[in-house]
């Protein structure tokens, strides 16, 4: 056998063996998670233009972008189950006294909403809050075993605003009837206190940027995409990657059509970059989970169409099931 032939045979052998080696050393595939969505409550009759400036109502207009006067906005919470974890993305709000204030309807306690999925509060292992606003970070104390994940930047952002010397910027609220979107707007003492409560009992992880909190569950920072320390959650599922965005993804149609939504303290460029993140991770906009999409729980928002009505008229949706997981849809 000539030397050239021996070299060729050796290279051929390498070509067979190397891919085998690559296969055996590749990281284990991330588990697939089951995902449900529950509606903490619904804000009724919100002027569309206040939520999405590009879709402001124009009386008499036949343009579908401008012919809707008001919308009902759900407050969506993600429920993610897989491995040893039951994870909530956002936790809605609890202050029942707010019900009259905000024109909200269909509020139900989150433990009651989880019961319809067969989940008890003490089984919840992790809560990732997309941001700390009152309608997304409430009810934390109802989940005694859950570890809270909040971005350090979110806490810094609020405190920075509180201590800013200009009272117009530092204002928690500037006039009766609204807090005028100051940087610390939307964080009642009670909500911040609940976050503090988790820190006090050692049940909080202060996140700095990106973090994998379990195999296949990855937090991505989306700073200033809605608030200073907004964060997304990437979830591996049987229907591909899903990305939860809280109010960085307030509106699913906005992600589809590249429009801003729910401005609040939003840097609109950062909101668009957060949209882009979902496109990059999931390959499109279908699997981006919006917190306040008015079309939620209907065929028009396909990810959430497998829905039903639960406690107090709140809605829920079975988004995807992991292999072997049973359906919870009544």
């Amino acid at each position: 056998m000539s030397k050239r032939v021996r070299v060729r045979m050796f290279l051929a052998l390498l070509a067979v063996v190397l891919p085998m080696g690559v296969t055996t050393t590749a990281p284990a595939q991330a588990p697939q998670y089951s995902v449900w969505l529950v509606e903490s409550s619904r804000f009724m009759g919100v002027p569309f233009g206040a939520f999405m400036p590009d879709r402001a109502f124009v009386p008499g207009s036949t343009n579908p972008m401008n012919n809707i006067n008001t919308v009902d906005l759900p407050v969506n919470i993600g429920v993610i189950k897989g491995g040893k974890d039951i994870v909530l993305y956002d936790s809605g709000w609890k202050q029942q006294d707010y019900l009259k204030m905000t024109g909200s309807a269909h509020w139900a306690p989150l433990p009651q909403q989880l019961a319809q999925l067969g989940i008890r509060p003490e089984q919840v292992t992790k809560i990732v809050i997309g941001h700390g606003h009152w309608d997304h970070a409430g009810q934390l104390s109802d989940f005694p075993n859950a570890i809270l994940y909040v971005q350090r930047e979110e806490l810094r952002g609020i405190e920075w605003a509180l201590n800013y010397p200009n009272p117009h910027i530092a204002a928690v609220n500037t006039s009766p009837g609204g807090c005028a979107r100051t940087p610390a707007c939307g964080y009642p003492p009670l909500t911040v206190n609940e976050i503090y409560g988790k820190v006090l009992v050692g049940k909080a992880v202060i996140v700095d940027g990106e973090m994998e909190i379990a195999p296949g569950l990855i937090i991505h920072p989306a700073f200033r995409a809605h608030t200073a320390g907004s964060q997304l959650l990437e979830v591996n599922t049987a229907i591909g990657k899903i990305v939860f965005g809280s109010d960085a993804y307030s509106d699913w149609e906005a992600i589809r059509d590249w429009m801003i939504a729910n401005p609040q303290q939003t840097d609109t460029v950062q909101q668009f970059l957060a949209y882009e993140k979902c496109y990059k991770i999931t390959g499109g906009y279908q699997n981006c989970v919006a917190a306040h999409e008015p079309l939620s729980y209907t065929d028009k928002y396909p990810l959430t169409k497998n829905s039903w009505v639960g406690p107090n008229g709140s809605r829920a949706a079975e988004v995807t099931l992991a292999p072997g997981e049973r359906s919870r849809k009544p």
Binding site: T102, D135, P176, P188
Partner: peptide, 24 residues
């Protein structure tokens, strides 16, 4: 104590300043 205070403040605010907190 501060938690209870926060709840009471919200309850009072519900009567006095409806709309103090808007959907966020």
């Amino acid at each position: 104590l501060s938690r209870e205070a926060g709840e009471k403040m919200l309850r009072a605010g519900d009567v006095l300043w409806p709309g103090e907190y808007v959907p966020n």
